[in-house]
Amino acid sequence: MVQRTFLIVLMALVMLVVLCGCRDSSDDGAPVAADTPGGAVKLFNGNDLTGWEAEGGARWVVEDGLLIGTQGENNAPGDLFTTAGYDDFHLTVTWRAEWPCNSGVWFRYQGPDKAYQADILEYANPECYSGTLYCPGKMFLAMNTDKTLVNRDDWNTFEIRCEGDRSQIWLNGRQVADVRDDTTATGRIGFQVHAGGEFGPMKIVVRDVLLEEL
């Protein structure tokens, strides 16, 4: 009887050790392999801003597993960037916005004058919507003119693929940009909160940021 009890206790201890050893590696805040084909990694861990750095006066917080960006005091703008830079990649970002909104996903960002952005906006002149490809100094390299592609009150998904001088963007499964341009071939990935009182109520909410290097 004593020997049987000892074996039961021993087996319980072994199971406890195994379970502790199988904890989710995302607990340490570092980017982790995502459960997606091709070796994509989660740039946003859902817990905190590890691997990211803020510039400017916007406010960036993590709440309930979501990354949220809003204007700071006096409608202050700002950006949030990865600490690492990337060359060729396939990026998937799931986001939603509270409108009116002027935001976007920066990529191959080297500075405010040398970068690309997949816009999150509603622009009047010329008329274009989220998914439009913006480049500082060159304005819009490609425009999404179909507002029906945007889920204004729900989640949206950008896919951004960069190879060499080619940049492609898909919004909710529909391709909205396919451009060759050599402004920048490498740089950080980030999010923008634009200045302006007219955008004061805006909120950009990000659920997933998955990147596969090519």
Rank of each mutant, 00 (worst) to 15 (best):
A185S: 11
D146T: 01
I160Q: 05
P37M: 10
L80R: 07
V206K: 03
T184H: 13
A115N: 05
M15C: 13
Y109H: 13
I160P: 08
L16F: 05
K114G: 02
M1N: 14
G190F: 08
I189F: 03
R96Q: 07
V41S: 13
D64L: 03
A58S: 00
G65P: 11
W155A: 02
N151L: 05
R174P: 03
P37Y: 06
L91T: 11
E213R: 11
I120T: 01
A34D: 07
I120F: 02
A177G: 10
C135N: 11
A142H: 07
V105Q: 14
P136S: 01
L211V: 14
A12K: 02
A118M: 12
G196P: 04
W52M: 12
N125V: 06
Y123H: 13
L121Q: 14
I204K: 03
G39Q: 09
G39P: 12
I189W: 07
Y123K: 13
W60A: 05
I189L: 04
N156E: 03
Q117C: 02
A97D: 00
S167A: 07
V176E: 00
Q168L: 09
C128N: 15
R4A: 15
V2M: 14
Q71V: 09
D165I: 03
R207A: 12
I189Y: 05
G69C: 03
I169K: 03
V17G: 03
Y116S: 00
D146S: 00
Q168H: 06
T94M: 04
V62I: 05
D64W: 00
C22T: 13
A34G: 06
W99M: 00
D153Q: 09
G21T: 13
V41I: 15
Q192Y: 10
I204S: 03
A76V: 07
M11T: 15
A34V: 01
C162T: 07
D35A: 15
C22N: 15
V105C: 13
A142M: 07
S167K: 12
G111Y: 06
M1S: 15
A76W: 07
D24E: 14
C162V: 09
P201R: 03
L91W: 11
L66E: 14
T148E: 11
F199N: 09
E198G: 11
R4T: 15
D35Q: 13
Q192T: 04
A12Y: 01
L214S: 10
C20V: 04
G46K: 01
A76C: 06
K147G: 11
P201N: 08
P31Q: 11
R188P: 02
D27Y: 14
V176A: 00
M1L: 15
G85F: 10
G57K: 06
V176I: 01
F107M: 08
R152E: 12
D146G: 01
L66H: 12
R166I: 01
I160C: 07
T36L: 14
F6T: 15
L171S: 00
D28Q: 14
P77T: 09
L214A: 11
Y134V: 04
A142Q: 04
K114E: 08
N172H: 11
M15W: 12
C20P: 01
R59G: 00
L43N: 08
A185L: 12
L16C: 04
D208G: 03
T183L: 06
N144Q: 09
N125C: 00
R59K: 02
L43V: 05
K42C: 03
S25N: 06
G131D: 01
E212V: 13
P37Q: 10
Y86G: 09
G57H: 02
E213A: 08
L210S: 07
M1K: 15
N75C: 11
G164Y: 10
G65K: 08
P31L: 11
